[in-house]
Design a protein around this nucleic acid. Structure first.
Lengths: 248, 248
DNA sequence: CCGTAAAAGTGGTATAGACAACTTGACATC
DNA sequence: GATGTCAAGTTGTCTATACCACTTTTACGG
């Protein structure tokens, strides 16, 4: 059941095994999962390794622990993901075909305002990338993106018609977006966007202002996404409410 | 420096010590923090304990790790918190005085639709609580909340004029909201809300649909919050982008 | 029958040690 | 000078063990 010479760590393998059990319906929500000691014995590993596996489940919101009682299956999430995922992935997850119409794709030098957001020197090369995003041919968002080119020079001349930006960053540039700072706003759609999104004047749009960080907390992308307010509610996902360390 | 007989675990004490160092400016962002072995030696603990301290920092987004290189200070966050916080806390954090006008406060029996959201039986007692939320006397949101009363029976007759709901849940009922599922929508303000929020007809509002979960993933609260779209942009905070376990 | 105490089982914290995977810099070699 | 190799230092994973804190169950005594 466990391959000790696999490249994937043992605790991940155990976590995956438990996830499979949950998905197969062996445990429903609220059910008690095997205790750490039991896992350790069953898979012939130390208790810490079993515990690490459980930690993985808890990070993903699949399970929760209670001291003295046990580890239990959490209620199923609304979506698979707990954080934020790429636009293309989100569309695909809904069973639709993502595509894009590129409006603007050009290199620009960072203005003072841009440089401040990216935390770089003014004049740094950025890629301006404005796109209409479509799902099964229907426009569902306009994205105004700026990308930190020095972190991914290969992206300068790529085509973004079909490709996911995140996938290109991962595969071509070994850049892994890991964090997002987000702020949301509602406003009335402007004439140009109304045309792009097939909306009537006077309707409301949802605007997400995002800063995307790499694992080293460099800003890789600044993007404003405009969604039709009611046609495409914006799903944030399940978020953990973090409480202060000091008060603990 | 470390109190071995304190009630707070050693690894938390070490984490707090490191946080203090960062706050005092001893390490600026990007700076390398002491290695796990160095921490272990300095505080006279095992390496695992030192590692647990670092894990605490990473969970909070204060630091990040790179295998083979070390542990480094993350860029400062926009806000203190990485998850979602209570409305009252958010207002206070901006240096304003939170208050409320209670529009409706009554017990209701869960309809089928409500029961489905709460994952309880229809007819379960709920507390309907509709409030205008104010900051320094200015209205900045309308909240339509439903609260799962069986989980917090003491809240039935409380006054919500000045008090934070989360604080009451914590202190009076030992209920700790830990997760939120959120969906956002933009729409045109209706006449009643325009009056409450001092808005003009035709302006856009931001609507947040939230499900709040306790640590055991029971639904404690379902709330729809209506914000003036542009006057009060909704800050989501820094979120970790979670990637699939299977693909690892 | 009831209440209390003990036992068993759970997760939480901690020690000591080991090897693997990865990064960097120094050094030797070509 | 360029290149490759090695060593040192880092985090990543894992074993084996121990005791603590908390919860539930069991057994005993009244």
């Amino acid at each position: 059941m466990i391959n000790r010479h696999s490249f994937t760590p043992i605790y991940i393998q155990i976590a995956q095994a438990i996830i499979r059990s949950v998905e197969e319906g062996q445990y429903t929500y609220g059910a008690q999962l095997p205790s750490e000691r039991e896992l350790a014995e069953r898979f012939n590993v130390s208790r810490l390794t079993a515990r690490q596996a459980n930690e993985e489940l808890i990070k993903r919101g699949i399970a929760y622990r209670q001291q003295g009682k046990g580890t239990f299956v959490a209620r199923p999430r609304i979506r698979e993901v707990s954080g934020l995922i790429s636009f293309s992935d989100e569309i695909q997850e809904r069973g639709l075909q993502p595509s894009s119409v590129v409006l603007v794709q050009q290199q620009v030098a960072a203005t003072d305002e841009m440089a401040k957001k990216f935390q770089v020197k003014p004049g740094t090369r950025l890629l301006e990338l404005n796109r209409i995003r479509l799902a099964d041919g229907q426009p569902i968002a306009v994205q105004y993106a700026l990308i930190n080119l020095p972190l991914c020079p290969k992206l300068a001349d790529k085509s973004f018609d079909g490709e996911s930006l995140y996938r290109l960053l991962r595969d071509e540039c070994q850049v892994y977006p890991l964090w997002v700072d987000m702020e949301m706003e509602a406003r009335i759609v402007n004439r140009q966007e109304a045309e792009w999104l097939n909306m009537q004047p006077g309707e409301a749009v949802l605007v997400a202002h995002c800063l995307t960080f790499t694992e080293t907390f460099d800003v890789i992308e600044v993007v404003n996404s405009v969604y039709p307010g009611n046609r495409f509610p914006f799903y944030i996902g399940r978020q953990r409410i973090i409480q202060g360390l000091a008060e603990k």
